[in-house]
Amino acid sequence: MKVLLNNKSTFLDDGLTIKSLLNQIDMKQKYFAVEVNEQIVPKSNYDIFLIKEGDKIEIVTAIGGG
């Protein structure tokens, strides 16, 4: 399925959860947040939240800024 991942068109396997997506991209940061279609996905839902075709997924973190 095709999704928009951090504003990049990306193909993912069907039936992927947020947790499996994070494993797939080798996400090891401690502090990050996930949003799907402008709705925050709580960390407690990562293993049950199923990604759908066309979803707009944002994975964000804290970086240097003033």
Partner: peptide
């Protein structure tokens, strides 16, 4: 700190401000 997209595909262990 600023809130920005993670650079997917890069080494996610490096450059982590926190």
């Amino acid at each position: 700190v600023a809130i920005r997209r993670v650079n997917i595909g890069q080494d996610n262990e490096s450059d982590n401000l926190l």
